[in-house]
């Protein structure tokens, strides 16, 4: 038997009528309960509700004090990306510092696994706590470096440090 299967012992004699009437009072009672629906475009939040800090949404590239992307073009994120949706062309300046010449993420192909954030040695690329991504043009879903750096939404914490296994 599979793990965690709960066997419910049926009572030997059940009155279907009583069960049905009980169910009907229950459903009728729910007619007048407070509704849990949040009327989305008008209400985006309500007391006691927020997106989880572990939410993995569209990406954001963090920047250093000079406003440059923190990325050092190490190539780890395109390597690990299971959707193969990160395009990276590395460049190097006179001092030998590596930086991304081209850095693009195709958000349509991304599966939002968060591996890129996890693997990044510079804590540069992050998945964001953000969900309103609509565009009028398919091409706009390939985010380039400039766009990734310009994002301002909070970044995902991926896991809760106090509870790393999500228990």
């Amino acid at each position: 038997m599979a793990i965690g299967v709960k066997v419910v012992r049926r009572p030997d004699s059940v009155s279907y009528l009583r069960a049905t009437l009980k169910g009907m009072t229950l459903t009728f009672g729910h007619l007048f309960r407070r509704k849990v629906t949040m009327q989305y475009p008008e209400e985006k939040s309500e007391p006691g509700w927020s997106l989880s800090p572990r939410w993995r949404g569209t990406h954001r590239m963090l920047t250093d004090e000079q406003g440059r992307a923190k990325c050092v073009a190490c190539g780890l994120c395109p390597q690990i990306c299971p959707a193969n949706c990160i395009k990276l062309v590395p460049g190097e300046d006179e001092d030998g510092h590596r930086y991304p010449l081209i850095y693009e993420i195709d958000e349509f192909r991304c599966v939002f696994c968060g591996y890129c954030q996890e693997v990044c040695p510079e804590e540069a690329i992050h998945v964001g706590v953000h969900y309103e991504n609509a565009e009028y043009d398919r091409g706009r879903f390939v985010y380039d470096l400039e766009r990734l750096c310009a994002q301002t939404h909070p970044v995902s914490s991926l896991w809760d440090p106090a509870d790393p296994r999500g228990e």
């Binding site: 459903t27 009728f28 729910h30 007619l31 007048f32 309960r33 407070r34 509704k35 849990v36 629906t37 009327q39």
Partner: peptide, 10 residues
């Protein structure tokens, strides 16, 4: 509507 109300939706 009624089914939504019975499930605490709108």
């Amino acid at each position: 509507r009624a089914s939504a109300w019975m499930q605490d939706r709108l």
